[in-house]
Amino acid sequence: MDVDSQPTMEETILVGDDLMMGPPSPLIPPEIASHVLEGVDLCDGILRNLFLCLQINDIEPFCQDEIVLYRQCAEKRDKELRQRLQESERKLGLSMPLNEASDRASQLQAEVTSLERRLILASGIEGMEGFRQRWSLHGRLTDTKQRLGSLKDGIENRKKDEPVRVNKANSKRWFFW
């Protein structure tokens, strides 16, 4: 077989839409953001380099290294954030006063229902805009369901002999009865 007749590997050119592989980055609730984000590489330096490359070169084929580096960093970051979110919700379920934990679970369930409805409505939108909306909503829905499951797991796994904690109005202290 002649060397020239061997099949050649085609080069794959990544574009910005290739960053939409897998689920979108999780949304971090403000009340637990400082705890969840602490020590996590947010990939902001790599993203800055990607934008700078795109600004200088104007097209994606010249920024392949930056796209690959950002995608790898974002995947690692998002995995770590999802784990931390679930663990934080579980800890809240274990430690919050029961009535507050139940209220939080109800709020998360309402958010799940709202996202499910919005996802159904987005199914009628065609083209790239429809895809982006469905992609984003599906990711948020999945993350919210996982957070809700972790919170409920924490609530259910409270110690049976743990005293009930009651949070009086306008009081930051917990009372043990």
Rank of each mutant, 00 (worst) to 15 (best):
E11L: 15
E11W: 14
T12D: 13
T12M: 12
L14Q: 05
V15M: 03
G16Y: 13
D18L: 15
D18R: 11
L19W: 02
L19C: 00
M20Q: 12
M20S: 05
G22N: 09
G22K: 05
P23G: 03
P24C: 05
S25V: 04
S25T: 09
P26H: 12
I28H: 00
P29I: 02
P30W: 10
P30H: 11
E31T: 10
E31P: 00
E31W: 15
I32Y: 03
I32P: 10
A33V: 00
H35D: 14
H35C: 05
L37R: 06
E38F: 04
G39K: 00
L42N: 01
L42Q: 03
D44G: 03
D44F: 08
D44P: 01
G45C: 02
G45M: 04
I46G: 01
I46W: 01
L47P: 04
R48Q: 09
R48D: 09
R48N: 07
N49L: 05
F51T: 13
F51D: 13
L52Y: 13
L52S: 14
C53G: 02
N57Q: 02
E60Y: 10
E60F: 11
E60V: 11
P61S: 08
F62I: 01
D65E: 11
D65W: 08
E66L: 06
I67E: 06
I67V: 00
L69A: 09
Y70H: 04
R71H: 12
R71K: 09
R71L: 12
R71S: 11
Q72I: 14
Q72L: 14
Q72S: 14
A74K: 10
R77K: 02
D78M: 12
K79F: 11
E80I: 03
E80F: 06
R82L: 13
Q83T: 07
Q83R: 12
L85W: 07
Q86C: 11
Q86E: 12
S88H: 13
S88C: 07
K91T: 10
K91E: 14
K91W: 11
L92P: 07
L94P: 01
S95A: 07
P97V: 04
N99I: 15
E100V: 12
E100L: 10
A101K: 11
A101P: 01
D103E: 13
S106C: 06
Q107G: 07
L108P: 00
Q109M: 13
Q109I: 03
A110W: 06
A110M: 07
A110L: 05
E111Y: 04
V112G: 03
V112D: 04
V112A: 03
T113F: 14
S114C: 02
L115R: 00
L115G: 03
R117F: 09
R117P: 00
R118Q: 14
R118E: 15
L119W: 01
L121F: 12
L121P: 01
S123V: 08
I125Q: 10
I125F: 05
G127H: 03
G127S: 09
E129I: 07
G130P: 12
F131N: 08
F131Y: 08
R134D: 13
R134I: 01
R134E: 14
S136V: 10
S136F: 11
S136K: 06
